[in-house]
Design a protein around this nucleic acid. Sequence first.
DNA 1: CACCGGTTGTTCAATATTGAACACTGGCGT
DNA 2: ACGCCAGTGTTCAATATTGAACAACCGGTG
Lengths: 214, 214
Amino acid sequence: MAATETRLLLLGTVMLFEPVNGYQLRRELLSWEVDEWAHVNPGSIYSGLTTLAKQGLLDRHDLVDGTREVAVYTSTKAGREEFSRMWVSAIEQVDPLSPLPFHTAIALMPLNDREVVRATLQTRLARIDATAREQMSRKGDMSAFPPHVRSLADLWMGLIQTDREWVVNLIGRLDRGELALQGDESSWAPPSGDPGWQMASDRERYLRLISGRN
Amino acid sequence: MAATETRLLLLGTVMLFEPVNGYQLRRELLSWEVDEWAHVNPGSIYSGLTTLAKQGLLDRHDLVDGTREVAVYTSTKAGREEFSRMWVSAIEQVDPLSPLPFHTAIALMPLNDREVVRATLQTRLARIDATAREQMSRKGDMSAFPPHVRSLADLWMGLIQTDREWVVNLIGRLDRGELALQGDESSWAPPSGDPGWQMASDRERYLRLISGRN
DNA sequence: CACCGGTTGTTCAATATTGAACACTGGCGT
DNA sequence: ACGCCAGTGTTCAATATTGAACAACCGGTG
């Protein structure tokens, strides 16, 4: 399972919009242009949802909406807990060659509350510094490698430092209360006007259908 | 096939060591610690080799080495051409969220000659600048996105600029003739003393067995 | 010599990913 | 009323990935 970021993204997006169906998620992710940077094709959404449901992290409700059958998903307690674990670990994991989990987690930041976010980002800083120190001390054994490979290590250092500065800046903004998170009023304004309302009304209907025991 | 970097890596490493068997590649990649940063498990090596052979990019020779059967691979003309194409495109492709193809290609740099490397890196620079400009001009439509997402765009910019500076520096070193490439004398000293010699003698034997029409 | 454990070399079933294709709805022009 | 096309919602067969397990060999040790 290379795609820890797909799991994270799906779990998180379901939590943001639940109850929600696969197509709505697809559209939402497209509108964020997430498909471009994370690599999410329509197929992975549906199979991902099936897998998460099978693992008990999501509940699947087969609703009859008008004349149509729709598979609508909600998060379970286990799913929300798993999301938290994965989110923390995606933020804490430092790997300049696989930045996707980190970026995905940042995009899902508002699902957590301020203290957790702050603490986790601090841990990332510590991990970055530890990685940098370790890299430095390993410079010695690299003498056996050809020069262009040693050069790559410099690039990694540079990327890590760029990351570090950005995180420091982000923590600053958090402390100044600049970013809307879970527990604040108005935590996430849906991206654009129109489709948002559409989703909201579907959401209401799905809620009623589910509570109507089906 | 998300793993264009696996194809690139396998094709390239075969070209470096051919004729070579799967286990030797596995060991070589482990000794570079490539398995850590690219994500290469033993399994992918063998299935990757099979696929490349099926596509005519590698030749598979089923040799009898002493009492044992060994599957030994060499590159085909088509394979070497495909490698060049993939290498160029991995260097030219700018994506701060999937840096793996680029880093993989850099590690395989010595398989190309100086002019090609230089020209391709220049193209990357141009692409980086184009991406940065495009990003800047899109800042406007991002006003609909929540602030933490807009923030991510700044991180991307930073990562791209770090990349840029490193590439500029690399081109400088190339121009000063500092890096050993294809066409220079002594293009790649095998990483460490011992296993290198072992590989070399296997290589000689495999060469003889193959030319002995089997 | 019988056994052990490490290295060599590979296969395989379970799982994940891909993207194309399917099937249905609803509106709109004629 | 008809045909058409864009949107909605999902499935599926082909392919790729994973990592654990397999099997054979080699060199020592008791």
